[in-house]
């Protein structure tokens, strides 16, 4: 555990909590892609199956359970409790174009051809692109609520911090996991355009709106 890893995890946790609170307090999931949230629930489910097979630490177990629990709570709020506010017309990204290739890739390129390892690889690949339906939705509507941009910033920052964590671990522990690193770089790059808008607009007190 190093400072980048810890702050990365906390940034991830902050993102998840921000989204849950935003939906809960405003009693609305307008502007939120339910498809991205389903993908994240799928990501956590397939990645944390090792909860059943091995114990790493209390921190590890608690965080995994919190992430999974919050992911399903978010999906429940969007598709059940506040379904009336869900903007399905704008959430039109075709997720099969992500899930099918990612599934194929995880079978082809993995560390070990075993069910649990393939599912872990699937989750790593899927996480790297799971935000695309959300970004697609924002590009379609041309705007995002400020609180939604805070959520996206924390979510993007988390994987960027993990990149520093992997650099740290490579130098000080000789550890590296090429699958996680490549997927992590892809994931972070997908946020770059958003990071730019966040810094130049949202942090200067303006609403995030895209030119028509």
């Amino acid at each position: 555990m190093n400072i980048f890893r810890l702050t990365g995890d906390l940034s991830h946790l902050a993102a998840i909590i921000i989204l849950l609170l935003k939906i809960w307090k405003s009693r609305s999931c307008a502007g939120i892609s339910g498809k991205s949230q389903i993908l994240f629930a799928l990501v956590f489910t397939t990645r944390y199956l090792d909860l059943f097979t091995s114990f790493i630490s209390l921190y590890n177990t608690c965080m995994k359970l919190i992430y999974i629990g919050c992911a399903y709570a978010t999906v429940y709020l969007i598709y059940a409790k506040f379904r009336a506010t869900y903007d399905g017309n704008h959430d039109s990204f075709r997720v099969e174009f992500l899930v099918v290739p990612v599934g194929g890739l995880s079978v082809l390129i993995n560390h070990d051809f075993s069910p649990l390892e393939i599912l872990w690889t699937f989750s790593i690949y899927l996480e790297s692109v799971a935000i695309l339906p959300q970004l697609f939705m924002i590009s379609k509507t041309g705007e995002a609520e400020t609180i939604t941009t805070h959520y996206l910033f924390c979510l993007g920052l988390y994987r960027a911090l993990y990149l520093f964590n992997w650099i740290w671990r490579f130098y000080f522990e000789g550890f590296f996991d090429m699958i996680a690193i490549v997927a992590g770089v892809v994931q972070t790059v997908l946020y770059c355009d958003f990071f730019y808008l966040y810094v130049t607009k949202v942090l200067k007190g303006k609403k995030l709106s895209l030119p028509a």
């Binding site: 990645r47 993990y162 550890f175 996680a180």
Partner: peptide
């Protein structure tokens, strides 16, 4: 590198 088994990172 631990290939199979539990993962430390989240």
């Amino acid at each position: 590198r631990r290939v199979t088994g539990g993962k430390d990172e989240l």
